[in-house]
Amino acid sequence: MVNRILVGAHYGLKDWIIQRATAIIMAVYTVIFLVVIGSVAPDSLESWRGVFAGGFMRFATFLFFISLFYHAWIGIRDIWMDYIKPDGIRLLLMIATATVLVGYAGWAIRILWRT
């Protein structure tokens, strides 16, 4: 006998998959970034900007940031769901989290495309 109420919302499979997909994107980017930094060894503003000036690194860094913010959304939301029981405060914290993360995404894009 299955003691679960199988009606209503989904069980979070989509978020579970996105959490892992974004983790893999960030892990691959981390390796690429460390290899690039290790070989370029940027020591000035020009060489450091050069790292992100190429189309590939700029796009890969953009993808990393978007993955980071979505990944953070799922992880932080899990923390609120685990520890914050009153619905109102939990909802408020979730909205605040989503709001700052969307803001960070805009900020990251501005940083990358102004360089």
Binding site: L45, W48, R49, F52, A72, V100, Y104, W107, A108, I111, R114, T115
Partner: peptide, 14 residues
């Protein structure tokens, strides 16, 4: 610490 890290990243490039 994301805002601190993003701020560091921004000032390192601007």
């Amino acid at each position: 610490l994301l805002p601190f890290l993003l701020w560091l990243f921004e000032s390192s490039l601007t």
